Amino acid sequence: MQFPLVHVSWALADNAQRPACDAFFREVFGAQTAYEIRVTPETEKLGLDREESLLMIGDTMVIPIAPAGRGAEKGNPLGEMLRRSAAPGRWIGLALKVGDLAQADAWFAARGFKRFYDPGMEAHYFLVPKGQMLGMRLEIVKQDMPNDPRRDPAWFPAKDDPLGIEGLQAVGVSTPTLAEAQALFADKLGCKDLGGRDLPEARCAAFAIGDTVLETLEGTPGSAAAHHAAEVKGICHLVFKLRDAAAAAARLRGQGLPLIGEVEDRFAIHPDAAHGRLIWLTGVTPPGYPPPGSRLGTGIALPR
């Protein structure tokens, strides 16, 4: 499966948390705001049920989403989904871009996947539910995200961001066993197997997906990765490649942020200080991994 990554999303339980979360990513990661979706008297009349900022970390779009407007009401479907998905360590999923939605639908159907369409959005995207993706919701989209700067061939990410981010290196997904991950991502979806390696608390098998990498983690007994696979499921981390890991770590420590991991390998702000999300930073590229960088505008085709 080779369609490029559009965005990574996660949920906040309460819209009052969103401004601080957005500010954290702007101030610490140098995130740039591409677009904001806000509840106003006009949009609330149209039934808007969430607020979100489309944030660019380098050339990767990340979207923290919070229930608002009708979504704040008890029983609202999207609001309830966001509140269920807002626990620490839990993400919503990935969105991938295609040029032909009907062709993509047929491609997934031929591989036995269920597809769901939100009413009124049948021409724009469909969802592959998380129960078929090791707990990760997959959104297959045809439309462009509003004000997505990657649509402009002349655009490029800022080179003076505070951490020196080169791009998204990988998305981590917990799995009960690597055999299950192999059966899903390599055998069923046709993702290229990039090989495996041992991490401090897990065995890792990597697969190429679109223009990034899925790191599937089978945690050692009692580890956080094993707990995530059993109790949380789905995406467990992101990894961003840095130009200078030591300089980035020094900057974060100077801001008083607690770090975990090893600067020489990969390190992260402790999730408790990062709005409950684990985002690794590294200056190292594992063998077989592609160079980081969005290829959203290159028209990557579906595999046969």
Rank of each mutant, 00 (worst) to 15 (best):
D14A: 01
H7E: 10
A208N: 03
Y117Q: 15
V8H: 00
A246N: 15
Q143M: 14
A11H: 00
G195V: 02
V128D: 00
L94M: 12
G190S: 08
P176M: 09
P64Q: 04
E51H: 14
T285G: 11
A123K: 14
A226N: 02
L78N: 06
P119C: 04
L281D: 04
A202Q: 11
Q169S: 09
V213N: 00
K233I: 06
G164D: 01
D100T: 04
T212C: 03
R83F: 11
K74C: 15
S85F: 05
F29G: 06
L78I: 07
A158M: 11
L48W: 13
L96R: 09
V173W: 02
G47M: 09
I37N: 06
R38G: 07
M145K: 08
A274I: 13
I165H: 02
I37H: 08
T33G: 02
E42A: 14
M61F: 08
G71D: 05
G254Q: 11
A158I: 11
L101Q: 10
D160W: 05
E80H: 05
A246T: 14
R90H: 15
E80D: 13
L82D: 03
C236W: 08
Q143C: 15
C21G: 08
A110W: 05
P292A: 00
L184Q: 11
A183I: 06
C191N: 04
R295Y: 10
D265R: 14
T40F: 03
A205G: 11
K45R: 15
P4S: 06
Q182A: 15
E51Q: 14
L78E: 08
G131A: 13
V28P: 12
L302S: 04
D105H: 14
G112K: 05
F207Q: 03
E201Y: 15
V232W: 01
A16Y: 12
A205F: 13
G58N: 06
G190R: 08
